[in-house]
Write a protein that binds this DNA or RNA. Structure first.
Length: 723
DNA sequence: TTTTAGACCATTTTT
DNA sequence: TGGTCTAAAA
């Protein structure tokens, strides 16, 4: 049997990783070094060269996207030989284990997965119940406290609050939160992992069974694992010495979410000081770009010390543009993007990156003005939309009779006159009797103290839900969803809303499609029961919440540097390279510069051929114009790699020169007589005269005939210049 | 129950 | 600045 074909397309380091001995390995995979390729070839190698049964392999990723890609690529490489392999996200795998062995983890078999939204509702409820001041105990903060404790593997009982009263309170809330979840059979994201950890910890036979099963474990993006995930992996790996961790310490940008680069160092130690295999050959970027990336990241300490090298040519220098203000920066980008496209590259070859989402607005505005097609990544995800969640809450109530959270969400949606006090009554009764709210609701109907008008409303709601439950036997999943949307009058409700009603209805149509597709694939797998399909769907939606897919194809990609991780583009613009923007202000204050620098490294290494960096002297932030300084990261790039862009455009040159003369009178510098400006209310106009200076400066602008001339205080006028 | 006005606040995001 | 959330008013 000759398996050398699995190694042929690899370089030396990759080959070393793929064909490494069957022991734990740490692979340090630099940006663009073929990390995924190594992973899938390693899996193929295990199967082909060692005759390892695919079902003995567990491959763990962070995102569904990565898991899907991996599964796809292994299957392309091996054909159908991957029967039984486990490829999934941490959460997906944990979920699978809990559905199988829930009873050993003290979970009922119909537990529900809840999202942050539901979590927050629970926390708010508890804070109210405990009569706490929600200004002092801010629900969101408390929730992140709970989640971060869970992510470090800590239960409330594990936390010693010491003498700190507020921590005592937090821990108490955490405790009550856990009790609520247990009673309601709901499990949050972190809980999935925590439960599995405990499942294995307290059921040794089960752990041994899985240790026996998974002869080989691979983890992707290892630098992003948190303490709990690492503990989880170690537990599962046991003494098998069979864990291949692939990651890049330099690309660890999720520390704020609990990720610990430290796990990489611990891993080395825990594995008897294994020598990491370094993948340093980069196949993505030209060498100037890589040199810049290397130079920047070299400022961090305690690294594993990789040095990426490129076999590609030097390539273009990094173009750096010093903008007068953020508007000017956006104009520059919009114009440059058009130039790139005019030369023949596609819009989709271009990415514009920024540190924070707020920066996208201006860019977006100017791209629109210049008729450049673009797509913004991130933002609200499909299953997070209120209208979609509401329908799913209906499905939850229909399928899980006891789902209090879902019930509360829809009992008065669309508004049917069941007010807060009635809900309160139901909730109270439910708490006193230990029944679900659904049962309490039924109880209230029989209670002679309940006012008749309330009874009729509750009765109508009950009938509605009962009707849907009946239809579970008759209707397909898709038809049931349609019925829910129509019969519950959700459509009617959104039709009345003429601001966002139409898009909401469109989203619901999309939801119906999604349900249809899901139902089809379920049917193919032999799951034909509607109720069963819905249950699976609800889980699926919770664990794989895709970004809203925009159908538009060839467009410029706008996204944060974080969401750019793992992607690559021929042209990359890194914008807002200013102190307090990038590195961001909070990061500077909290002394998290190293992570910002890694983010910078990630951003730079996204570029294949052309990298453009821009910063500006004035930036509007929170409604104020602020002077900003170039980012320290710019200085960390060797000067010889940079090319400073000078614009030939007259206006920009002028405003820049004026700006230099008048650093204090920043307003006057931009709006000289004759400058074309735009006002949010009055539209476009031309500056006719100006008086005063600094913050007192007033300018007279000639607008469209219907408006005429206006004299405005410049500072308040909110003008933008149009070049 | 819905609308509106004022308060407040503000990185990064997956599951 | 502007988006979100809460509390008061219609």
């Amino acid at each position: 049997m000759n398996n050398s074909y699995l190694l042929e397309s690899l370089n030396t380091a990759q080959r070393k990783a793929v064909s490494a001995p069957l022991e734990s390995q740490l692979v340090l995979a630099g940006a663009g070094s073929g990390k995924t390729k190594v992973l899938i070839h390693r899996i193929a190698w295990l199967i082909k060269n060692y005759n390892i049964n695919p079902s003995a392999i567990l491959a763990v990723t962070f995102t569904n996207k990565a898991a899907n890609e991996m599964r796809q690529r292994i299957s392309n490489l091996l054909g159908d030989d991957l029967q039984g392999i486990w490829v999934g996200t941490f959460h997906g795998i944990a979920h699978r284990l809990l559905r199988r062995h829930g009873k050993y983890a003290n979970l009922s078999d119909n537990f529900e997965i809840i999202d942050v939204d539901d979590q927050l509702r629970i926390v708010k409820k508890i804070i109210k119940e405990m009569n706490l001041d929600d200004q002092r105990y801010i629900p969101k903060k408390i929730l992140s406290f709970i989640n971060s404790k869970k992510d470090s593997g800590l239960r409330a009982s594990h936390i010693n609050p010491g003498y700190r009263y507020d921590i005592k309170v937090k821990v108490e809330i955490y405790k009550r939160y856990s009790i609520y979840c247990q009673q309601n059979s709901v499990v949050d994201f972190s809980e999935l992992l925590l439960r599995v950890h405990e499942l294995f910890l307290y059921n040794k036979w089960l752990l041994e069974k899985y240790q026996e099963k998974f002869k080989y474990i691979l983890v992707d993006e290892f630098q992003d694992t948190n303490s709990l995930q690492y503990a989880w992996l170690r537990l599962l790996s046991g003494d098998n010495n069979n864990l291949m961790a692939v990651g890049d310490d330099d690309q660890s940008i999720y520390g704020w979410r609990g990720a610990r680069i430290d796990n990489m160092h611990s891993f080395v130690k825990d594995c008897n000081n294994i020598t990491p295999i370094k993948l340093e050959q980069n196949y993505r970027s030209s060498s100037n770009i890589l040199q810049a990336a290397n130079a920047v990241i070299a400022h961090n300490e305690d690294r594993f010390n990789k040095q990426l090298t490129s076999k590609l040519a030097e390539g273009e220098k990094i173009k750096i543009y010093a903008a007068v203000d953020d508007n000017d920066e956006a104009i520059y980008i919009a114009n440059y993007v058009k130039k790139i496209a005019a030369k023949g590259d596609k819009w989709q070859d271009i990415a514009v990156l920024y540190r924070s989402n707020a920066q996208s607005r201006l860019l977006e505005e100017l791209l629109v003005q210049n008729s450049v097609p673009y797509r913004i990544y991130g933002g609200s995800r499909f299953f997070d939309r209120a209208e979609v969640k509401n329908v799913i809450a209906y499905l939850r109530v229909i399928c899980f009779e006891d789902s209090n959270l879902a019930l509360e969400r829809i009992i008065n949606f669309p508004p049917r006159g069941i007010g807060e006090k009635t809900v309160e009554k139901i909730r109270e009764n439910s708490e006193n009797t230990n029944n679900s709210m659904w049962l309490s609701l039924t109880g209230l109907l029989a209670d002679s103290n309940t006012p008749t008008n309330i009874i009729s409303k509750l009765e109508a709601f009950k009938e509605l839900i009962l009707y849907f439950r009946e239809q579970l036997q008759q209707l397909s999943f898709t038809d049931l969803v349609k019925q829910v949307i129509i019969k519950s009058q959700i459509i009617e409700h959104y039709k009345k809303d003429n601001t966002s009603g139409i898009t909401r209805i469109e989203n619901l149509e999309e939801l119906v499609n999604a349900c249809g597709q899901f139902a089809n694939s379920m049917t193919e797998e032999g799951v034909t029961d509607t109720k069963e399909q819905i249950c699976e769907f609800v889980d699926h939606v919770a664990l794989d919440n895709k970004n809203k897919t925009d159908k538009q194809q060839d467009c410029v990609q706008l996204m944060t540097m974080h969401s750019a991780k793992g992607l690559e583009f021929k042209h990359v613009f890194i914008t807002g390279m200013e102190e307090d923007i990038f590195p961001s202000r909070p990061a500077v204050e909290e002394n998290n510069i190293n992570e910002e620098r890694r983010l910078c490294y990630v951003a730079i290494t996204r570029a294949m051929r052309y990298l453009y960096i821009s910063y500006s002297s004035i930036r509007t932030l929170y409604g104020y114009n602020r002077n900003s300084k170039p980012s320290r990261f710019i200085k960390e790039i060797p000067e010889e790699l940079l090319e400073h862009v000078k614009l030939t455009s007259k206006v920009s040159v002028n405003s820049k020169r004026n700006f230099k003369f008048n650093t204090k009178k920043k307003y006057k510098s931009i709006f000289k007589t004759g400058t074309k400006v735009r006002h949010p209310k009055f539209g476009d106009g031309v500056v006719a005269a100006s008086s005063g200076s600094g913050e007192q400066e007033k300018i007279t602008i000639k607008f469209d005939q219907s408006i005429g001339e206006k004299t405005l205080v410049l500072k308040l006028a909110n003008l933008t210049s149009i070049y």
